[in-house]
């Protein structure tokens, strides 16, 4: 039997793989120097995190008054990508509905090719088919988003799908006292329904830093697990509508 691995390495060394072109680094430097510096997680978002962490401690005490809800919520901390904590006061929700930051519009076919996971596309539901698909390669494993738009081009509902690699990526959502939280079943998978007052939304990345998340319709939200994915549907939806969309996937 030939040692194919060693032969492959030899072959790699013998191949004339091209070198990067001259001046590439200088051209990159020129381009980045002419543009904006790296986007930082916004100040308000960092403030949200600080408020949130403080609120978690309070919430841990406060929520004990409703042990059933607390238990249910704690169970939910096991969900791969998402976690919900109830807080007493609502930090300013950074709702930025117009620049979604979801990546480039792509065809569904392209999104399927680009995503590092099996994309679940919405089928027939009360919302109809989504109007736009976007792919964000900067999320680990990629993130696919489906948008439903009104006649003016504003998003009325949004479905995002992403894989939480190795369980590192963590989504936090702040739910104030005006938000109803319910555990729901989505085709046998665990789901959670948030309804009522707008809720702040942010991601914690692997280092526990808030991700620069610019989108949030921050309306009624359904979060659920599907295989290795966490899915999030939000918009002007009733619970029944949201579940219908989820089941259409």
């Amino acid at each position: 039997m030939r040692d194919v691995e060693r032969e492959l390495r030899d072959l790699g060394a013998a191949l004339a793989l091209p070198e990067p072109p001259e001046g590439l680094a200088a051209r990159v430097r020129e381009t980045v120097a002419a543009g904006e510096p790296p986007a930082r997680p916004s100040r308000s978002r960092r403030r949200v995190l600080v408020v949130a962490l403080a609120a978690l401690v309070l919430a841990a005490l406060g929520a004990l008054a409703v042990p059933q809800a607390r238990t249910a919520l704690l169970e939910w901390l096991g969900i791969r990508g998402a976690a919900v904590e109830r807080v007493e006061t609502q930090p300013d929700a950074p709702v930025v509905p117009d620049e979604y930051g979801l990546g480039d519009p792509v065809t569904l076919e392209a999104a399927r090719g680009l995503a590092g996971f099996e994309v679940a596309a919405p089928g027939a539901s009360p919302l109809g088919r989504p109007d736009e698909v976007r792919f964000d390669p900067l999320t680990a494993g990629g993130q696919v988003a489906f948008l439903w738009l009104d006649d003016g081009g504003a998003a009325t509902a949004l479905l995002t799908e992403f894989r939480a690699p190795l369980g590192f990526e963590f989504v936090e959502k702040l739910a104030g006292p005006g938000t109803e939280i319910a555990l729901v079943d989505v085709d046998g998978g665990r789901g959670i329904w948030l309804e009522g007052e707008p809720h702040g939304f942010y991601y914690l990345d692997e280092a526990g830093q808030p991700r620069d998340e610019t989108l949030r319709l921050a309306r009624n939200t359904l979060l659920w697990e599907r295989g290795p994915l966490t899915l999030r549907l939000e918009g002007d939806l009733t619970r029944e509508q949201a579940l219908a969309v989820a089941r259409s996937l």
Partner: peptide
């Protein structure tokens, strides 16, 4: 490289 620069804010420090 240009996109990565703009996205550095999302890069996990130390990774």
């Amino acid at each position: 490289f240009v996109k990565a620069y703009r996205a550095l804010g999302r890069f996990r420090a130390g990774a």
